[in-house]
Amino acid sequence: MTSLLQRVKSNMAIFAHRKARGMLDGEYCSVFRGRSLDFDDLRAYVPGDEVRDIDWKASARHGSPLVKRYMAVRRQTVILVTDTGRNMAAAAYSGETKKDIAVMALGVMGYLAHRHGDMAGLVCGDSGGTTSLPAKGGEAHLERLLRQVDSTATLDAAPSRIEDQLHHVARNVRGRNLLFVVADEVAANPAFGQLLRRLRAQHEVLWLTVRDAGLAPGEPLLQPEQALPDSYSVSGSHPLLAHLARDPAVAAAYATAVAERDAGRKAMLRQAGITEGEVDGTGGVMTALFALLERHRRAG
């Protein structure tokens, strides 16, 4: 059986030829900021910050409240959170299954944690239940986490509902950790937004969205003159008739619906103070994660 972690490490090695591995490591380290003797920098105060972290002298000079940030020196915990419902067994925009992209992204983040001496745990599941594997170190443990995701995200799984896994984290995960969430293109709603704000108040949260396949199966890989195969929705099991995909009115309505859903999700995450990235294939995972970590640092 091929090691999933070995695939992850091979992908990272290829990426390292194009971007310095140290840059990616640096972005990973910048996520963890905790109380220690190692002062890092100052940033603008935002609601929810500890009042005791305000640097009053610097704030007086600046004219608005500034808080101190510290580089954490203790071992950190990364909680990998992902959807293993049947939505993740569907096709992504690249034509690969979303599960394969999720495994690659979770593997890269988990391996970064391993290289830095941090521990990684997993919370995954669907609307039928949630599985939690405790945080530990080591490559064998990380392989087990990836196997759990790979083996459970199938077309026979229950429908996806990432909110259930996030509720599990909110109820059961103590301390301040890094939550790395890999999910489908979720729809926003007020209760979901409230849950995200609750999680962000306790944890650092990074969110990676796996992009859906286009309206036409295989899009954009197929040429306009090629025949389209019929497909079906894994969430509702209803057919998606191929000939409708080329109807301009259908395509326009679909594009509008996708844009509205994306805008709602982005606004919900932004209001919760959560940095989001997007990825549409395994080949783009490294670049997407690098950009996500960098945006999170800048938003700091």
Results as ranks from 00 to 15, higher is better:
70 Y>F: 15
32 F>K: 01
213 A>W: 01
208 L>A: 08
44 A>M: 06
7 R>I: 00
167 H>Y: 10
77 T>I: 14
172 N>Q: 13
78 V>D: 05
254 Y>E: 02
37 L>H: 12
116 H>K: 14
130 T>I: 15
210 V>F: 07
101 I>Q: 06
130 T>K: 02
193 G>T: 07
34 G>I: 09
287 T>I: 10
241 L>H: 05
143 E>Y: 03
182 V>S: 09
12 M>D: 08
150 D>E: 13
173 V>Q: 08
297 R>S: 11
153 A>G: 04
196 L>G: 12
89 A>M: 03
90 A>K: 00
76 Q>R: 15
15 F>H: 12
63 G>A: 06
187 A>I: 01
72 A>M: 06
122 L>P: 06
13 A>Y: 01
26 G>Y: 09
286 M>T: 09
165 Q>N: 13
291 A>F: 05
169 V>L: 06
60 A>W: 03
254 Y>N: 03
297 R>D: 11
83 D>A: 08
32 F>D: 04
192 F>R: 12
225 E>H: 14
198 R>P: 04
229 P>I: 09
17 H>D: 07
242 A>R: 04
37 L>C: 00
246 R>G: 09
116 H>F: 05
1 M>D: 10
179 L>W: 11
261 R>E: 10
95 G>C: 10
66 L>V: 00
49 D>V: 08
69 R>W: 00
159 P>E: 09
44 A>H: 11
50 E>I: 00
71 M>S: 11
195 L>G: 08
87 N>T: 09
23 M>C: 01
24 L>K: 03
137 G>V: 06
212 D>W: 05
204 E>L: 08
31 V>Y: 01
292 L>D: 07
296 H>L: 01
132 S>L: 06
131 T>C: 08
107 G>Q: 04
263 A>C: 05
51 V>N: 02
234 V>N: 09
250 V>L: 04
180 F>M: 04
239 P>W: 04
272 A>N: 07
269 L>Q: 04
269 L>A: 07
226 Q>R: 08
86 R>S: 07
98 K>P: 06
187 A>S: 14
21 R>P: 11
238 H>F: 15
93 Y>L: 15
205 V>D: 11
191 A>P: 00
237 S>H: 14
195 L>E: 07
201 A>L: 10
205 V>Q: 08
101 I>T: 03
80 L>C: 07
93 Y>N: 11
168 H>P: 00
9 K>Y: 00
232 Y>L: 12
52 R>E: 14
17 H>N: 10
157 A>W: 02
239 P>A: 10
67 V>F: 03
257 A>Q: 13
71 M>N: 09
270 R>M: 05
78 V>K: 05
294 E>Q: 12
164 D>W: 00
226 Q>M: 13
204 E>D: 15
256 T>I: 09
142 L>A: 03
54 I>Q: 04
67 V>L: 04
42 L>Y: 15
270 R>E: 15
30 S>V: 01
70 Y>L: 03
167 H>F: 09
154 T>L: 12
